[in-house]
Every structure is written in structure tokens, then in C-alpha cells.
């Protein structure tokens, strides 16, 4: 069963066709990777799915509901959560507070109830804090809970961003280059973490450059080149796909 279905999605910027007629599905409970050379349109595709960009044509269905055209916060409310290629943790907030923002869609105190600090909002705050600490524990970041998020080491910031996305308890998690800037050991840990997240029942769609990571953990891989899908298959088949090899390594006689 497909949790995400992308149909004939296109988007151009001025004269540049960033994404052209891309269609694919993501199976519920799987890890699907999106790879391609620089400028292939991977991040644009992510932004189209998560509501940061609107498609020119085509549609995005999440659990058979159309989500293209929705604002990012509405997409998040449907159970689709994402991380960013360039880490976007909240400045001047602790790690714990960053994670607590992830609980936003699962809590409901608004301006008036916040201003009067009503008893039920106090209970809600306590629940938000406890759940966020649980998630930090799960990812092994609990000692850093009270540190300023942007003061963490780079690898830990990646984990913190992942924790924040997990706090949303998404059905589908979009990871935009989660291993970018990580060393080999950290990348291996990230791979394990992503596999554990999948085992929790969360579907993962991942954009990544690191081939070892992608080949190890993905159930399926899509390859984009110049905005078009050139392959969509299991990792073994992708490794042997002549078109993919040509795109990545260049023409044999070139």
C-alpha cells in the first residue's frame, strides 16, 4: 500500500525545468531513497511534497488525500515531517525546547489559554516536556537537553533535528541529506538510526549523496537526472542500471 503517491509532478523556475513529470510511490513502512547528481531536482521535489513550493502541474497524494497546494504547517499537521539539508534548528532555544516544538501539532493551548496559564495547559506543558525527554533519550541526546541547540557539535545538531521531526510522530519522514557533513562513524550511526525509525513503523523518504548509506538501508531507490526520473528500483538493480552508471560516472568513451 502506498502512503505517498506523486503523479506527473512538474515545477520550473524561470526557464529552468527543475522537476519534470516525476511520478513515484512510497510503500507504507519502507525506506525509499532519492538520489541524483547535484542539481537533479531532489530538494525541489522535497519542497514540492512538504508544501514549501507549489507544483506547476501534477499532484501529491498522502494517504490518498491530496496535499499539494497546502501550506507547510498544514502538511505537517497531516503527519508528514521533514528535516533540512542545511540544519535549521531554532536559535537561542535549548535542545529540549527545540524538540518541544515538535509536539506543537499534538497540543492545543492557544493565545488565551496561554495568557491565563489554565490548569489544563499546565498539564499539557508537562506532557509535552515528558514526551520530548523520552525522544531525546531514544536518540541518546538527553545530557544535552538544556544546552543551546545551535551550540552542539555538527553531528549532534543533525540528530537534534531528527529528534524534532520525530517528536511530531509523523507517518512519513522526509530526510534531506541527513548524513551531509558527517564523518564515516557518524554516518553509520545515522544509518542505524534511520533503520530503527523505520522499524518503529515510520515510512522514510530520504535524499542522500552518500551511496553506502543509501544502498545499505533503502528498500527502493529513485534516481533523478535533470529533473526527470531515470530509474526506480531496488538497490541491487539500481547498481547495475546502465543509465544510472552513465549519469553518475559519465559516458564510457568520454
Amino acid at each position: 500500500m502506498a502512503i505517498l503517491e506523486v503523479r506527473d509532478l512538474s515545477r520550473s523556475f524561470g526557464g529552468l525545468q527543475a522537476v519534470f513529470n516525476v511520478s513515484f510511490t512510497v510503500k507504507n513502512g519502507s525506506i525509499k531513497a532519492l538520489i541524483g547528481p547535484n542539481g537533479a531536482g531532489k530538494t525541489t521535489l522535497f519542497n514540492l511534497i512538504s508544501g514549501f513550493l507549489k507544483p506547476d502541474t501534477g499532484s501529491v497524494l498522502f494517504n490518498n488525500q491530496k496535499i499539494h497546494g497546502l501550506k507547510p504547517y498544514q502538511v505537517a499537521g497531516k503527519g508528514l515531517s521533514r528535516t533540512f539539508q542545511h540544519i535549521k534548528l531554532f536559535h537561542k532555544m535549548t535542545v529540549l525546547e527545540n524538540i518541544m516544538i515538535g509536539r506543537h501539532i499534538h497540543s492545543k493551548a492557544e493565545f488565551i489559554s496561554g495568557m491565563f496559564n489554565l490548569p489544563w495547559t499546565q498539564r499539557e506543558e508537562k506532557a509535552i516536556r515528558e514526551r520530548s525527554l523520552e525522544i531525546l533519550n531514544f536518540l541518546g541526546l538527553s545530557e544535552m537537553a538544556d544546552a543551546e541547540a545551535t551550540s552542539l557539535a555538527y553531528g549532534q545538531q543533525r540528530i537534534a533535528e531528527l529528534a524534532r521531526a520525530l517528536a511530531c510522530e509523523p507517518k512519513l519522514l522526509l530526510l534531506d541529506e541527513p548524513a551531509a557533513g558527517l564523518n564515516m562513524r557518524e554516518t553509520a550511526e545515522m544509518a542505524k538510526l534511520i533503520a530503527r525509525i523505520r522499524d518503529m513503523g515510520i515510512t522514510v523518504l530520504i535524499v542522500e549523496h552518500d551511496m553506502s548509506l543509501v544502498m545499505n538501508i533503502s528498500d527502493e531507490i529513485i534516481v533523478l537526472s535533470y529533473g526527470q526520473k531515470i530509474a526506480d528500483d531496488i538497490p541491487l538493480a539500481i547498481q547495475k542500471n546502465s543509465e544510472v552508471i552513465r549519469v553518475y560516472l559519465g559516458e564510457e568513451d568520454a
Binding site: P72, Y73, L89, M93, G114, E124, R164
Partner: peptide
């Protein structure tokens, strides 16, 4: 409150706040 935290997150990184 939850709102105060959300406001600070807008200050901290507006895109990420929206994505949350």
C-alpha cells in the same frame, strides 16, 4: 506557554517552525 515557544521558534528559524 506553547504559544511563547512557537513565537520564539519563528524568531529562531521561520521555515523550520512552519515545517513543524
Amino acid at each position: 506557554s506553547r504559544i511563547g515557544r512557537a513565537l520564539r521558534s519563528i524568531h529562531g528559524a521561520e521555515d523550520a517552525s512552519n515545517a513543524m
